[in-house]
């Protein structure tokens, strides 16, 4: 079984976000990068499947040098090798362009399974896995909390509003991981040592043959500006004992806020 895992380096979720001077990006000064939290479930699932079924696991990440650190960490957890997609053209890519680069890198690799996190924290688009599946002409199951592989078939449990859906399909397929799929492991010291000897191949837009395709899709959507959300107005403090607090709150919700 050959498994591709797509990983995105994103600002640490504890980052205090500030807007960059040109308002087209966040201020990246001093930002620490991590693998997008959902991608950790994808990495873990790939390692577990390999442990069970044998085969090979390859990580893919698009971005600047921060992507190398995140790939190195994935190798330390147990992926076999990694591919870094790096090009000035790849700066601040929209989901369609990102997926085009990933699809080009993955397409001819003979992968049975492509695992992604269900959402890249930051852009918060939830789009790349489905776009990737379409570009690779593969079936998909997104937001998956349970995955079983049985020969050439997969069985996935996905989370929808107020319910879980069981999806069955054929491999190769694209699966996006949701929290609950597994408990990701931390890299071991041995894993960290081993990761130093594992290979990270770098590929640019020309090598991937996506220069024109990405220049075209990149031009289709434009960032007008980034801004901080407006701060909420100063709230009201409700004092007194529990009974009078409850009474006043209900009165305010009915007559002032008019929400109940």
């Amino acid at each position: 079984m050959k498994i591709a895992v797509c990983v995105k380096a994103v600002p640490d979720t504890e980052t205090k976000v500030a807007i960059g001077a040109d308002k087209k990006d966040i201020d990246r000064t001093g930002v620490r990068y991590i693998a997008s939290p959902y991608d950790e479930f994808a990495i873990e699932e790939a390692i577990r499947l390999k442990e069970k079924l044998g085969g090979e696991t390859v990580g893919f990440s698009l971005g600047g040098n921060e992507a190398v650190d995140v790939l190195r960490d994935a190798l330390a957890r147990g992926l076999d090798s990694a591919v870094h997609l790096k090009d000035d053209l790849f700066n601040n890519l929209d989901p369609l362009s990102t997926a085009k680069a990933l699809a080009a890198a993955i397409a001819d690799g003979g992968f049975d399974l492509i695992l992604c996190g269900q959402q890249g924290v930051g852009g918060d688009n939830n789009q790349v896995p489905a776009i990737l599946a379409e570009l690779l002409k593969l079936p998909q199951a997104t937001v998956v909390v349970k995955l079983e592989i049985d020969g050439p078939k997969f069985k996935a449990e996905r989370e929808i509003e107020g319910a879980h859906e069981m999806v069955e399909g054929t491999l190769p397929a694209v699966i996006s991981a949701q929290k609950g799929l597994n408990e990701p492991r931390y890299p071991s010291i041995k894993g960290v040592m081993a990761a130093r000897r594992k290979e990270i191949t770098t590929k640019d837009a020309a090598a991937l043959g996506v220069k024109d395709a990405i220049e075209s899709s990149k031009a289709k959507v434009r960032i007008v500006e980034f801004s901080l959300p407006p701060s909420r107005p100063q709230g009201k403090k409700i004092e007194g004992d529990a009974a009078s607090q409850a009474k006043e709150l209900v009165q305010l919700l009915r007559n002032e806020a008019r929400v109940i």
């Binding site: 369609l96 997926a99 939830n126 789009q127 599946a133 379409e134 937001v143 989370e159 929808i160 959507v221």
Partner: peptide
């Protein structure tokens, strides 16, 4: 949940951009 699964895939067929949420 349904749109998040479907719409990016459909947009891709038209090589079209999609802004979600």
């Amino acid at each position: 949940a349904l749109s998040r699964d479907l719409i990016p895939r459909v947009a891709t067929r038209f090589d079209a951009p999609c802004i979600s949420d």
